[in-house]
Structures are given as C-alpha cells and as structure tokens.
Amino acid sequence: MSKEKMSGMFGFEFLDDVRRMNKRQLYYQVLNFGMIVSSALMIWKGLMVVTGSESPIVVVLSGSMEPAFHRGDLLFLTNYQEEPIRVGEIVVFKVEGRDIPIVHRVLKVHEKDDGHVRFLTKGDNNSVDDRGLYAPGQLWLEKKDVVGRARGFVPYVGIVTILMNDYPKFKYAILACLGLFVLIHRE
C-alpha cells in the first residue's frame, strides 16, 4: 500500500492511463498535441500580420534600459511604416553582425523632406550613445534597421525564456515534460 502511494506521489501512476488507452484515443492525443503546436504558430504569425513587426513580442535580455526594463521583462512591439520615428520612442533594432536585436531609446532624429530618416539611439542606463554598438563606421540607424517600437510592457513574464537560454538542459526538460503531459493526459 505504501509503495503504491510512493509511486503515485512521483507521478508514475499516470502511465497506467496510457496503457488503458486504445488506438483511437492515442491518435486523438497525438492530433491534439499537433493542434496545440499549430495554433501557437498561428497566433504568432497572426500577431506578425496585425502588428507589422517581424517579432511582435520580445524579452528584454540586458540591463541597459534599467530602471525602466529589467532582464526578463516582456515588451509588445508594433512596427507600422506610416508612423514616424520620433525622439523618446523606444525602438528595437538590428545591427549588422549582431544576432540579438537591441532595445534602446531614440536620442536624435534628422528627417529629410522625402521621408528618409536618420536617427541615433541610447540606452537609459548607458552613459554614452549607441555608436559603439553599431556596425563599424555606422553612425546612424535608418528605418530598415527597426524591428519594432515598444508599445506595451509586462514585467517578469519573460524570465522563463532567460532561464531557458542560460540553461539549455532546463529548456529540454521543460519541453519534454510539456510534451509528455499533453500526450498522456486524459480528460
């Protein structure tokens, strides 16, 4: 009796559920799993269309915008081309030769009459502007460098992503657990 209780406590009992399933139920579970994955993908791609940004949700990875944004905070981005870029805005931009986009604030804007705009950014927590972060020889950012502009903010939510990036094993463990749970869980 006590042995059974122990195995129940560590969750091995649920394997009985799988044993009791017939083929139909198993197919159903696999399809269900596929549904979850594809709807997540659909939501992501749908958000891309609505916001016009290639990555509508980003996690803050550095402390260069503290105390506004800390590591692990979540930002919602939009990138509507008709909206002009102005100082004070928080933009997410890509720099040639860097994989990870940077979230910083616009410090200077020079716009020509044909709409061509050059701008310079700076992190709130940095003492100098971003020219040292740009590609060698690059002095200004242009509209094509922008991935999005920050519109909404939720704290802490992205901390899981940071943990997963820092500890890849943790990522695989979580993915395996979720996958297993969805596949064998029976309502």
């Binding site: 105390p67 506004a68 102005r86 100082v87 004070g88 604030r105 410090l107 200077k108 804007v109 020079h110 716009e111 020509k112 009459d113 709130d124």
Partner: peptide, 23 residues
C-alpha cells in the same frame, strides 16, 4: 506608474532636413 523618463527636445528645421529633433 513605475517611473517617468523626461526628455527635453530641441526641434528645428534646416535647409537639408525638414525635421530635426535633438534630445
């Protein structure tokens, strides 16, 4: 409101640029 980020902007027009904004 966790914080306010204040910035003083100088805005002007020049021959080359219709809009310049400098914090």
């Amino acid at each position: 409101v966790k914080q306010l980020f204040l910035y003083l902007t100088a805005e002007y027009e020049t021959k080359d640029h219709v809009l310049n904004q400098v914090v």
